[in-house]
C-alpha cells in the first residue's frame, strides 16, 4: 500500500463517515461538527488530487467561512440548548431504503464504466502542460501548483491549452463567469443583509 492509497483511505473514510454522521445525528450543533469533519477531510482529498488551490479554498471559504456562518445561524435560531427536531423513525427507514437504492444506482454506474478507455478516448482538452510559462515556483502544475494557471484562466487566458504543441485556435478562459460571480456575490451580500436585517418585532400591547 503506497502512501497515496493510505491517505486516500483515511480521508475517504473520514469524509464518508462524517457525511453519514450528519444524516444520522439529530442534534443540529453536532451535525455542524460532523459537517466540518467531512468537508475538512474532503479538502484533504483535493490535496491528494493535486488541486492545492481548490483544497485551500475549500478550507478557507467552505470550512472557515460558510460553516462558521452556519454555526452562527444555529446558535441564533436554537430555541433551547441543544435543540432537537426528531425525524420520525418511519421517515428515516424510508429514507434509508431510498438512499441505498440511489447509492447502488450511482455506485453500479460508476463501476460499470471502463474509465481508462473513456479517459483515453477523450481529447476535449490538454493536460495541464509543462510549458515553462506555467512552471513557476518550486513544484510543477501536475504536482498541485495550479495557482498560477488558475489565475490565468480566471483572467481569460488558457496558456495550458494554447501553448500546447499543435494548437491552432485560442481558447477562452473564465473571465466572464468570474465577473458574473463577483457581481453575484455583491448582490448576495446586499440581499442577505436586507433579508436578515433587525426588524423591530411589534408587540400587540404596544401598537
Amino acid at each position: 500500500m503506497t502512501g497515496h492509497q493510505f491517505l486516500f483511505w483515511v480521508f475517504a473514510a473520514v469524509t464518508c463517515g462524517g457525511a453519514i454522521a450528519v444524516v444520522l445525528t439529530q442534534n443540529v450543533v453536532r451535525m455542524a461538527f460532523w459537517l466540518i469533519v467531512s468537508l475538512g477531510a474532503s479538502a484533504g482529498l483535493f490535496f491528494l488530487l493535486n488541486a492545492d488551490f481548490v483544497g485551500t479554498a475549500q478550507l478557507l471559504v467552505y470550512v472557515g467561512g460558510t460553516l462558521v456562518l452556519l454555526v452562527f445561524g444555529v446558535m441564533l435560531t436554537a430555541s433551547g440548548p441543544f435543540s432537537k427536531m426528531q425525524t420520525r423513525p418511519g421517515e428515516l427507514f424510508l429514507a434509508g431504503i431510498v438512499a441505498f437504492l440511489l447509492l447502488g444506482l450511482l455506485g453500479s454506474s460508476v463501476c460499470s464504466v471502463d474509465w481508462d478507455r473513456v479517459v483515453a478516448s477523450t481529447n476535449a482538452g490538454q493536460p495541464i502542460t509543462t510549458h515553462h510559462a506555467l512552471n513557476q515556483g518550486y513544484n510543477r502544475p501536475e504536482e498541485g501548483n495550479t495557482g498560477h494557471p488558475l489565475g490565468m484562466a480566471f483572467l481569460g487566458m488558457r496558456p495550458d491549452r494554447d501553448l500546447a504543441p499543435g494548437t491552432k485556435t485560442l481558447s477562452t478562459g473564465y473571465l466572464l463567469p468570474f465577473e458574473i460571480a463577483s457581481v453575484h456575490l455583491l448582490v448576495v451580500l446586499i440581499g442577505a443583509a436586507y433579508l436578515a436585517r433587525a426588524k423591530r418585532r411589534i408587540h400587540p400591547n404596544e401598537s
Binding site: F53, T56, A57, L59, G64, V68, V71, M75
Partner: peptide, 27 residues
Amino acid sequence: QNLEVGLFFMLALMSLEVLGVVFAGYS
C-alpha cells in the same frame, strides 16, 4: 510542505480555529 499556496493555506487553517472556540462556548 513547500506549498505554492503556502500563505493562503496558513490563513485558511488558522481560520478554522474559530470553530473550536465557538463549539467550546456552545457546548
